Simulated scan of single mutants.
Amino acid sequence: MKSALVTGGNKGIGNEVAKILAGNGFFVYLASRSLENGLKAAEKFKAEGFDNIEAIQLDVTNQESINAARATIGEKTQVLDVLVNNAGISGVRQQSALETTIDAFKTVYETNVFGVIAVTQAFIDLLKKSPAPRIVNVSTSMASLTLAANLSGNNYPTRYVAYQSSKSALNMYTVNLAYELLDTPFKVNAVCPGWTRTDFTGYQGTSTAEEAGQRIAKYALIGEDGPTGKFFSEEYFPEPANCPW
């Protein structure tokens, strides 16, 4: 049975991704900063008939927690086939380029950038043992420099400089990671789930969590002829070739 690790999997989009992957035959390690919340989510899945989902405590901002999760999963499997770096935060609102504090930037970057890097590096050895490893980094169209640079446009009349820049940095990390793994079976991509109605957005948006989960899971399930080192925002750009970084 293939295996997957989904960070921030106890609720929202991550929860849907975990459910989709489990439904596709994966054993899913549902990572949650709070083990209690993770266990509650796993119990709910079991009540729905899923016996291939297990809660794992993992705080992406805490290296000891990451190491402990790596040790726990390493005791259960020697191979990890999919890593979905879903855990993320938006930070304080609103975020002014002139007034947002350095501490506010650091808080957002700790989760959205450094957390992704730390988790990826911790689990890369298990992923390398998979015949078809996949890494999906959950990003946003708000990270697009092309869209944000249209100062007269109405794409983002409200700016969130810490959140947007953190996801832009994540996109660049994704490109570099894909480049380093180019001559391997890895597929590494960044995916925007769309404006999704979850607690992350105050339950505002144009997409359901189920729709967003499908967009993310799609790139965890791609075949050997699938893309790598790309950014996809299918809600806004149905033609992937037209999706701007």
Results as ranks from 00 to 15, higher is better:
Q214H: 08
Y29L: 15
A18W: 10
A178S: 10
P240Y: 04
Y236E: 09
C192E: 05
T201F: 01
S141Y: 09
N176M: 10
E99T: 08
F27I: 12
S233L: 03
N37A: 12
S65Y: 01
L147V: 02
N10W: 07
T100H: 00
G23P: 14
L147A: 08
F26R: 11
T7G: 12
T146V: 08
F45A: 10
L145M: 06
A55R: 13
A47P: 08
V113A: 00
D225H: 07
N62M: 04
G205A: 01
S3Q: 12
G25I: 12
K2A: 10
L151V: 11
P193M: 03
V161G: 07
F27K: 15
L221M: 09
L182F: 10
F45M: 12
G8K: 08
V113L: 15
V108W: 01
T111G: 00
R134P: 02
G213D: 03
S65G: 05
F237C: 04
E54T: 14
F114D: 02
G9N: 13
P238N: 08
G74F: 04
E235V: 08
F231Y: 06
N154M: 12
A55M: 10
G223H: 07
T158Y: 09
K19S: 12
F105I: 02
Q121V: 03
L145C: 02
P240S: 05
T174F: 05
S165C: 13
S152V: 08
N171A: 06
A132I: 06
Y203C: 01
N112A: 01
T208G: 00
